[in-house]
Amino acid sequence: MLSVNELALEIFDNLADLAEEFNCAYHELDNGARIVDCGVSVRGGYAAGRAFTEICMGGLGEVNFRNGEIKGIPMPFIDVNTDFPSISCLGAQKAGWTVKVGNYFAMGSGPARALSLKPKHTFEVIEYEDDYDCAVICLESDHLPNAEVMNKIAEECHVDVANVCAVVAPTASMVGSIQVAGRCVETAIYKLNELGFDTRKVIAAMGTAPVPPVRGAKLAMGVTNDATIYHGRISLTMNAPEIKDYLDKIPSNKSKGYGKPFNDIFKEAGYDFYKIDTSLFSPAEVTINELSSGAVYHVGAVNPDVVIKSFGYE
């Protein structure tokens, strides 16, 4: 079986070896754990954002950039594709691990989750877990982890701490904007999984979303979510005639909170995530080619007005 940690380690090693060329910084702790700072105290960039996103997908996704436009305004877009949607998105990229050690907090994602099995139910559903002696984790945080944090990750992954590797970037950074927009495909696979659909039947996936501008820590969460909620466009190829029963529930415009920038919705919810309709965390538009019947389905639509408002364009 494919090892997402083994594949991601190749990308990590290249990033670590050439950190300066990626506008990143490499650190090795006294316990041997390795860290690449992609945005905490460095500026990062598109190359670092691509590497971070491909590591997060366990080496089973490909990332590219292009210059697109929304309502005539030019802006960068990220394009993501994978031939292993269930493993790369749910088995690696999903932000399913809250890393909290002492005063340190980060959202953990990436292939290390397939060793720690966080959350376990996800891996039971997709029938995948990794078996490798090195753990590669992606941390969304504005602080670098210390030795204690890396030790904890090693324990959870059942590997030696010297074999733990982490890439780190804050949400409010260039790499942060890129890697969250790079979750556009994952958002679609995650939504299908939440609906009870067997995502192992999705055999290929491709998606695109605008890369949000970096607007500061206060707005970062909102603008990065809005990229996919209001302008994520996903194409899925699958062998699953039953998908027709799920179509109306896939796109974000079916959510009760749809129609406003995420930061406005969050504010109205008293900054309480549990008060937000979880169906909002979906792509804007999805096209599906169902191979057994030859059917092609299209649901949802982009909402350029909300994107322009969220991104702060005048």
Rank of each mutant, 00 (worst) to 15 (best):
A92Y: 06
L60H: 08
E156W: 05
S141C: 01
A269N: 08
R183Q: 02
V149S: 12
N146C: 12
H158R: 10
E314L: 08
A240P: 04
H158G: 02
E62I: 03
P261S: 09
H231V: 00
G232F: 04
D264K: 15
K249Q: 09
K100W: 03
F65D: 03
T237H: 09
S141H: 07
R66V: 02
E285K: 04
T278C: 11
A181D: 09
V125S: 15
V159G: 11
V167A: 03
V302S: 13
P210K: 07
M221E: 14
R113V: 00
A162E: 09
K120N: 06
L60F: 05
A295N: 10
W97D: 15
F281E: 09
N225M: 10
N289K: 12
G61Y: 06
K267L: 02
M75T: 04
S141A: 13
I203K: 07
E20F: 05
A92R: 12
F52R: 02
G257H: 15
R183M: 00
V306C: 05
Q93A: 11
T199K: 01
L15G: 06
D37F: 07
F266C: 07
S88P: 03
A51T: 14
V99D: 12
E285W: 00
F22R: 11
G182F: 07
N253W: 08
G44M: 12
K118F: 10
G312V: 02
N5G: 13
G270Y: 00
V136W: 09
G39S: 04
I35Y: 03
K118T: 15
R113G: 06
A205Y: 05
A112P: 09
F197G: 06
D160R: 03
G72Q: 11
N146Q: 05
E290N: 05
E156Y: 11
A47K: 14
C138T: 13
I87P: 07
A33E: 07
K94N: 13
V36R: 10
L115Q: 06
L2V: 15
M221C: 02
V306Y: 13
M238R: 04
T208G: 06
R50T: 07
L139S: 14
R113I: 00
T237D: 10
L195Q: 05
G294Q: 04
V125E: 15
E148M: 12
V99S: 10
A47M: 08
V42H: 14
P304A: 01
V63K: 10
N103A: 10
T98R: 11
M206D: 12
N31Y: 00
V168L: 03
H231I: 00
Y297A: 05
T98A: 08
L291A: 06
V36Y: 14
I55K: 13
S41G: 11
G110E: 07
V307N: 04
T171S: 13
Y132L: 08
G270R: 08
G61I: 01
P210C: 06
E285A: 01
E156K: 14
D30P: 02
D130N: 03
S116W: 10
P213T: 03
D198H: 07
H231Y: 15
E156F: 05
V161E: 11
